[in-house]
Design a protein around this nucleic acid. Sequence first.
RNA 1: GCGGAUGUGGCGGAAUUGGCAGACGCACCAGACUUAGGAUCUGGCGGGUAACACCGUGGGGGUUCGAGUCCCUUCAUCCGCACCA
Length: 822
Amino acid sequence: MEKYDFKVIEAKWQQYWEEHGFYKVSEDPSRPKYYDLEMFPYPSGNLHMGHVRNYAIGDVVARFKSMNGFNVLHPMGWDAFGLPAENAAIKNGIHPAIWTYANIDNMKRQLKTMGISYDWDREVATCKPDYYKFTQWMFLKLYQHGLAYKKKSAVNWCPSCQTVLANEQVVDGSCERCETVVEKKQLEQWFFKITDYAQRLLDDLELLPGWPDKVKIMQRNWIGRSEGCQFDMKIAGSDEVISVFTTRPDTVFGVTYMVMAPEHPLIDKLAQNTAQAEAVNEFIANMKHLSDIARTSTEIEKEGVFTGSYAVNPMSGEEVPIWIANYVLMDYGTGAIMAVPAHDQRDFEFARKYDLPVRVVIQGEDTPVDGADLSEAYVGEGRMINSGAFNGLTVEAGKAAVTSYMEENRIGDGTVNYRLRDWLISRQRYWGAPIPIIYCQDCGMAPVPEEDLPVLLPEDVEFKPSGESPLNYVNSFFETTCPNCGKEARRETDTMDTFVCSSWYFDRFCSPNESEQPFDKAATDYWMPVDQYIGGVEHAILHLMYARFFTKFLYDIKWLSCREPFTNLLTQGMVLKDGTKMSKSKGNVVSPEDIINTYGADTARLFILFASPPERDLEWSDAGVEGAYRFLNRVWRLVMDYAELMQSQDSHSAELDESARQLRFKTHATIKKVTEDIEGRFNFNTAISAIMELSNLLGSYRENPRPQAGVVKAAVESLLLLLSPFSPHICEELWRIIGHKDSICLMAWPKYDEEALVQNEVEMVIQINGKVRDRIMVAVGSDEEALRRQCMQSSRVLEQLEGKTVRKFIVVPGKLVNIVAK
RNA sequence: GCGGAUGUGGCGGAAUUGGCAGACGCACCAGACUUAGGAUCUGGCGGGUAACACCGUGGGGGUUCGAGUCCCUUCAUCCGCACCA
């Protein structure tokens, strides 16, 4: 018998599928479409196991849907801009473009050895001018609609790397590369106004029942909507007012002081000419030295200083001292708060430390009325006290009453605040899409005209670890003319965050070769939204939120017809080795290329899908891979053994003997189980174990001296069809060996026959008082009376029931009976 | 601190709607074939017992004829957010 030679088989069919254009798709209104997408990778140079898992999952879905009659779009591309390429340039003197394209070539080669059903004609790389031209187009559209703007902002600065870092590159307050504590620097930065979409991003999570709750909860928290009330507090002896935001207007009579963030612009005016001026200046100077994390950590003790000024509580007319403290943040709400120590734990701690009064205004059931007796802030339910006309109201009623009182008397307004901030997209780096803006001395800021796109990245650039963008040194790049007046002007040298590039790539895949527009509307109308999106949970907030934002914006400007980009989302777990994430530093990395060379892609895919359900973390096991390999070898031998029998006709027709009936039953039960496991719940591990059971039964059926060819044929063919989405190469090879001319990829997914699943007899468990005592075979559909009679014939049952009276007889049809006896 | 998840044999995991706990695979043990096997095939494999009984899904309690599954409580591990007023 020929041996299972995966090397030959996999190379052969990969070439065949490619040459025959198997995975090329186009719009076809006659078939239901299915857009299956895995998050495209950053081209780091090598595939890792996380990629293999991601793409193996996606490929099962694509092949399964395709066999079920869907017109499947399954594209792949490269999230190709980004910092590592530039680091490589600085370190090794290789141009980021050369480094990136070499990495893409290598990863594409590795990806092809996996045998995934990608339509490679649709490949995109975000670093190519024909792609980033339209990333720049997106910027211009946002700019035109007032959603891209520039403002001075504090950014993360790594003093060791001498460069600005993106938020996501700051881990626990330190640079992810060198672990130096990151500082804040004030720089002019470009932002996208995602906050304009905060409410819709929140509301439309309701449109996504196909997303994991976990991700939706994370996004909800990230958006952080809170309802409250904003009002002004006058500064005593001054015309200035300070706005504060609170979610507890019901506690406004409990205000005993006010706090401003150290960065608050009004502080200078307040502290001037008071005895506190020096203390205030010193405090602010100290704050500036602290990193963001150190400054806002909950671990750190609250610190503050009195400004010397007083504010007036607009409800009570009372004057309260104004403080500055580290626990108030400038970029949330108004950067200033009313402090109610009796009912806010942070204010409480601060008040105790600085001996500020604590006044109870909400009384719960057992709360002390004197603030001095509180040991912590009381944040529970209760009724308002010490609050004038509002006394007696509950917390809920009080919030509403105080807010409407403020609105009626023009004191303040009910408002909604979001935790979500605008998206800082400028990066002082070379390897990104240049921001298409020109600065003219006379006309000011001007967007690059659409017809001038793309703003090309210059190739001849020097890379130094200076912290400044290399583009600042390329005169030919930044020297330009004003699109309005034609005079000399300077180009923006910042480039865009790579998350901008990945916020619309799924649209581009629908019509990747458009040169005049980002995508063809008819194509996105046909393909979008993505039916199934698959990727790591680490993108739960950033990428998925940005992509949703872009989609909503494109919907608003009538470029897209869908409001949400991804109908269903699957977040796969990590691949672990020895209980921890694979990483170079831990030395526990398993190379996919090695595994594929040793065992083949079919084995690698099968193992990774079998070892764990997709959402959960997966523990890598070399022995497990061996097991998957052995299984494929068993399938190989099995089908080879049956190949001859399958050519013959059944000699003795219709009537099936018991073992053939069982095989037929198992075949159809397996089709049912595998179909439901893939379709309904992506439980590939149990689907594969069902296929293994069918294979085991087929294996033992070989012992049968009078095998029934028709039943065997159906079983073997089903086995191959069911296994083909997981391990396509071996199934294709065996499919041809058993005599088929057409590719297994073109076959319809098998359907199970209800009739084959009907059984005459089933085994039923007999429990006595909930414990299994016997098992009996009963005719399907036996009534309770018949079951009772049959139970009482069991000697084991009679033995157990001796001296007892039967109280109840519970029947679970087809499964068990439970006899309750005392 | 808040939010979320997970906890089942030696290991990965299964049990989908409250109904046989441990499917399938790995590891291990025994046997067959063999000059040989780290190949293949057959059988065994939660603990306990001579065999039963009995005990077993992180711990404790509860609901139920019946609980891995539902409720209460507690512990452990992991992930996300972290002074958001």
